[in-house]
């Protein structure tokens, strides 16, 4: 766990986001046990109260659940998991569209460039992996 936090967004929001990303990427699997609040604070080098706040937030959003005194786990609720993935995608698209719009590029051209770039990036990434 190595997260670079910015100083302007609430740290707990950034922690929640980090968890969502990990879930979307599949690094956190449904039902997987997550670190305790103290453990998380220690690993991310953040205030334990902030870690606590992040967990509370995630619990409210249904991202994690806690049964009795057991450690918290990532939700198994498919609906929530799908929602997380969609939310992240939508966020990225929104940002992208917003910036592309400001340069007045036609949609077809954008889609073409995106497709080309996406595949090329995939290729490059695939190569460097070897």
């Amino acid at each position: 766990m190595n997260v670079k936090f910015n100083n302007r967004d609430p740290v707990y929001v950034q922690v929640v986001r980090y968890f969502k990303e990990q879930i979307a990427k599949g690094f956190f699997e449904p039902g997987q046990e997550i670190p305790s609040r103290r453990e998380l604070a220690h690993r991310l080098k953040i205030n334990p109260n902030t870690a606590q706040r992040a967990y509370k937030e995630m619990e409210e959003q249904g991202l994690i659940f806690t049964e009795g005194n057991l450690p918290s786990r990532i939700t198994k609720d498919e609906g929530v998991l799908k929602k997380v993935r969609k939310e992240l995608i939508m966020e990225a698209v929104e940002t992208f569209v917003h910036s592309v719009r400001t340069i007045n590029v036609p949609l077809e051209e954008v889609l073409y460039i995106v497709k080309e770039y996406y595949e090329k990036a995939d290729y490059v990434r695939g190569n460097t992996r070897d």
Partner: peptide, 14 residues
């Protein structure tokens, strides 16, 4: 600090 970040979007330095 979290309140200021949340409500005003400011870092401590800001």
């Amino acid at each position: 600090v979290e309140e200021v970040r949340e409500n005003e979007g400011k870092s401590v330095i800001d």
